[in-house]
């Protein structure tokens, strides 16, 4: 170490260190590319297969044995019904649960147990919710739900998204600064007034974003809906929550599992529609988040 160096040029030892850094950088890049390239190939494949089949009649026709006459009307209506009901059921439940956990619950073992369970429920395979839905909503609650109906499906999917929605809402509520709560309590506001006027309005953009992202996860769910018996060949649209239904994901599954190439194209076209729905929901979520972005 006594050798005195005058040049600031990299010594061989540093060149070797830099080389190792570069290797790691390219390893990370290729890991990223695996995901991105696969996605692009998949999208391109689906687009090539399906775009030509995206005709107006595709949206206005019911499924059919004859590929040229088959459409997604019932599946599209079913998906909209399912998502709408699911939002109506899960949003109030999820937000209320999050408010209780964040603002009311005393920190203690009960809260910890509930919190841990919610986190675990968010990781339960969706088919398990399907089995639960079949037993509870389709069979046991048949006088109310009408059996294999839209409402049974919506209740099942609601159970599936609730943990995600609760966790997202809790995070949004936690992001509301404590100083705002203090200001409100300091003026003589009750807990409810504080939640109603400050916590919820300020957390709402985050809650809505979380809700939409949770629903966009649910829109592609197939397994639990097959489990509760959403039919695959339905030539009518639901008139009410107690009607039978099908959804896009099930329609895709059904078409994709048929041998004829025309049905493969139909499946691809339906996938495009589903992806468009999903992307617009995510875009809405991003727009909401940015519009309400706030500096404290």
């Amino acid at each position: 170490m006594s050798v005195e160096r005058h040049s600031l040029e990299a010594p061989p030892e540093l060149v070797a260190r830099r080389r190792r850094g570069k290797v790691f950088q390219y390893l990370c890049l290729s890991a990223t590319l695996v995901g991105v390239v696969t996605l692009v190939v998949l999208l391109a494949d689906v687009l090539i297969d399906g775009v030509a089949w995206l005709t107006p009649t595709f949206f206005t026709e019911f499924p059919s044995r004859i590929p040229a006459r088959a459409g997604i009307k019932s599946a599209l209506y079913g998906t909209v019904w399912l998502m709408g009901l699911c939002a109506l059921i899960s949003f109030p439940l999820g937000v209320a649960a999050a408010v209780w956990l964040e603002e009311y619950a005393k920190k203690g073992w009960l809260q910890t147990v509930i919190q841990t369970n919610i986190a675990n429920l968010a990781g339960v395979p969706s088919i398990v919710y399907g089995i639960l839905g079949l037993a509870v909503f389709v069979r046991w609650m048949v006088p109310f739900t009408g059996g294999r109906s839209v409402i049974s499906g919506a209740l099942t999917i609601s159970l599936l998204v609730l943990p995600i929605l609760i966790i997202a809402s809790q995070e949004a509520i936690r992001a509301v600064p404590g100083s705002i709560r203090e200001a409100s309590y300091g003026l003589g506001a009750t807990k409810w007034q504080t939640v109603r006027h400050h916590v919820l309005p300020n957390a709402m953009p985050g809650i809505l974003t979380g809700t939409i992202l949770a629903l966009s996860r649910a829109i592609g769910e197939t397994a639990p809906l097959i489990m509760i018996g959403a039919l695959t060949f339905i030539a009518f649209v639901p008139d009410g929550p107690r009607d039978q239904f099908t959804v896009l994901s099930i329609q895709i599954y059904n078409w994709a599992s048929r041998p004829q190439p025309e049905f493969q194209h139909l499946a691809a076209a339906a996938i495009i529609v589903l992806l468009m729905l999903l992307l617009s929901m995510n875009a809405l979520a991003i727009w909401l988040r940015n519009r309400h972005h706030r500096e404290w």
């Binding site: 600064p177 100083s179 705002i180 203090e182 200001a183 409100s184 309590y185 300091g186 003026l187 003589g188 506001a189 009750t190 006027h197 400050h198 300020n202 706030r294």
Partner: peptide
């Protein structure tokens, strides 16, 4: 809650509500 109405508090960091000036005072 009644105590806090009768005995007001101002905090270290200004913490206005993200609302209008009027609504802050009127809250």
């Amino acid at each position: 809650v009644e105590v806090r109405r009768r005995i007001g508090m101002v905090f270290q960091k200004p913490n206005p509500f993200p609302k209008s000036i009027y609504d802050n005072v009127a809250f």
